[in-house]
Simulated scan of single mutants.
Amino acid sequence: MNLVNNITLTAKKVLHSEAEAIAKLADFIDEDFENCVEAILQIKGRVVVTGIGKSANIAQKIVATLNSTGTPALFMHAADAIHGDLGMIQPEDFVICISKSGNTPEIKVLVPLLKRKGSQLAALVSGKDSYLAQNANFILNAYVEREACPHNLAPTTSTTAALALGDALAVSLLEARGFSSADFANLHPGGSLGKRLYLMVEDIYGQNQAPSVRENASLKEIIIEISSKRLGATAVVKDNTAELVGIITDGDLRRMLNKFDNLEGIQAADIMTPSPLTIEPDHYAAEALAIMQEKNITQLIVTKSGKFEGFVHLHDLLKEGLV
């Protein structure tokens, strides 16, 4: 067997092994897990997540997930805790200690100190009979049979399982709190993710010009309006009102050339697309993007109670990083 085949088989074996271990975690969600979630919901302080070695790396990720989903949390390295950082923990805090074995020397030193602080302690462990598990208020069972490492030494499957269980905890807390997409947006104002959750059509369409013509506008007026406003389209409104009745795009003009032999006397009403797609200013910009993508169009008319307001263009959404 060549080297490439060996690499492929090894990679697949690791992924299958870790996937199987995560699937088995579902069988370990028990009353202790439920009680742990309920206890965290009642605390007045923060969730402090600690660990050592690779478990410390996982702890940092869980802290980030908790903070971003409405549960205030902070990270404390287990080794640093016994050299001064223990002072960051208050009695009203809740501590989650991550350790595969639950028997490492640093953990054995740390646990009595945590209990002296008066904080509740959850053990996220692979060994339910370990020192850590036996001295915790709650056990979050992350048992794995073996690591994906062929020597069963390097933390691989165990850290993946701990991370997955941390996600399960964070999402359980999120749902129990009724944490909404609006709450999520408040914590993620930057980047495209945040903008999808808070950017409204009214925030962006006003920067564009608002091309419009009346129903009886001439072909010359239509072309000048589309060309001068540079959006590739114009709205068609009822005479002397802003009531929207149609849209004319560059594509409509091209189709007109095939439809009419004589262009003299053509008016907007003759070539417009009636009842065009629209969106209200108080809708999310992401909704406008979804409509454009579904209908394969590049601009969308903005209306308020049927009255023409302006256009939102695909380029606006690109500039905002939504695409």
Rank of each mutant, 00 (worst) to 15 (best):
V4C: 15
V14H: 08
K24P: 05
I29K: 02
D30H: 13
F33C: 05
F33I: 12
F33K: 02
E34G: 08
V37C: 10
V37E: 06
Q42V: 07
K44T: 12
R46G: 06
T50K: 02
I58E: 01
Q60E: 12
K61R: 15
T65R: 03
L66Q: 04
S68Y: 06
G70W: 01
A73P: 03
A79Q: 03
I82T: 10
G87N: 13
I96T: 05
I98Q: 00
I98S: 04
S99A: 15
S101F: 08
L110M: 15
V111P: 01
V111M: 06
R116Y: 15
K117N: 11
K117E: 12
A123K: 00
L124T: 01
V125A: 11
S126R: 00
S126N: 08
G127T: 08
K128E: 09
S130P: 11
R146S: 10
A148M: 01
P150N: 14
N152H: 11
L153W: 09
L153I: 06
T156Q: 04
L165I: 07
G166Q: 02
V171T: 13
V171S: 07
S172L: 12
S172C: 15
S172D: 11
L174V: 12
E175S: 12
G178F: 10
F184K: 04
K195C: 08
L197D: 03
Y198T: 05
N208P: 15
A210P: 09
S212H: 14
S212P: 03
A217M: 08
K220T: 15
E221L: 09
R230S: 12
G232T: 03
V237M: 02
T241I: 08
T241R: 01
I247D: 09
D250L: 07
D261R: 13
N262L: 14
E264T: 09
I266L: 13
Q267W: 11
A269E: 05
A269T: 00
D270I: 02
P276F: 08
T278H: 02
D282Q: 14
Y284D: 03
E287D: 10
A288I: 09
L289V: 05
L289D: 02
A290W: 12
M292C: 01
I297F: 02
T298K: 13
V302W: 01
K304A: 13
K304E: 14
G306M: 06
F311G: 03
L318P: 08
L318F: 08
L322N: 07
V323T: 11
V323E: 14
